[in-house]
């Protein structure tokens, strides 16, 4: 069964929010490496959610 788009999308966005939160935590603790790592993932999921949108649009 095709994966539910809404769920998928929401999951990606949720992950984005989750990693962004992690990023901010790391930022507060001045852990720059960790922060960059989390930001990378936040960005990744943001793009992923957009890609899904685009794919679906096509």
């Amino acid at each position: 069964m095709e994966k539910n788009y809404f769920e998928q999308n929401l999951n990606d966005l949720e992950k984005m929010v989750y990693y962004f939160e992690k990023y901010k935590e790391a930022l507060k603790c001045k852990k720059n490496d960790e922060a960059n790592y989390f930001l990378h993932y936040a960005n990744h999921y943001r793009k992923l959610s957009q890609t899904i949108k685009e794919e679906k649009a096509e």
Binding site: L39, A42, N43, R46
Partner: peptide, 14 residues
Amino acid sequence: FLFYETEACVELLE
């Protein structure tokens, strides 16, 4: 900073 704002922040940081 909930949903859309987070998205904006992430993109902006990039």
